[in-house]
Design a protein around this nucleic acid. Sequence first.
DNA 1: TGTATGATGGGCT
DNA 2: GCCCATCATACAT
Length: 213
Amino acid sequence: MIEGLDRTPLTRDFFDRPVLDVAPDLLGRTLVRDTADGPIELRLTEVEAYAGEIDPGSHAFRGRTGRNSVMYGPPGHAYVYFTYGMWHCLNLVCGPEGMASGVLLRAGEIRLGAELSRKRRFSARNDRELAKGPARLATALDIDKALNGTDAIAHPGASLSVLHGTPPPSDQVRNGPRTGVGGDGALHPWRFWIDGDPTVSPYRPHAPRRRAT
DNA sequence: TGTATGATGGGCT
DNA sequence: GCCCATCATACAT
């Protein structure tokens, strides 16, 4: 157990708010992943908001598809997608049903179960890199598409849940453009992080793929 | 600590 | 057929 943490679970109501309210409010919260080998806990240090069909950066921008259908469902569920042929990323659905908005969990500090994470993240050079980036976070917590649609509101047998944790003082919360988001979606400063935290991932602007020769 | 580049496959126009 | 909410590696500094 971790000393000094508020272990009260976040409720459905926490996520049933506008995504731009929820996203910064998730910083400092404790993400709990119950794996077959034991629990892993992480303190969230970096997130990004994706505002449904009005947001050019969102998977829901072009409407409902098979992949993004979970985003249209109730808040507090996990939307997990597969990208770049190799990686998974974890979002938490926000707002009322039908809004299709969510928060991408981009980085965090492993506070419990680091030995389990190190086995999956064997290439990490130090513990700060275990969950420094959204695909690293998913790998560190053994999250893949099997968890897509999972209810992350605490309940018996939950494989994923979020606790109240220790939110940072508001003057330590920063925001800026989202990483790797291009086009009009790059205009929105909807990435939120804890200032100075060593587990926050480096910002990278959108870089279009160049065709192989 | 930083930059360049290849990997790798599902989703969608 | 192009795009992608990315990362590991190699190499320079």
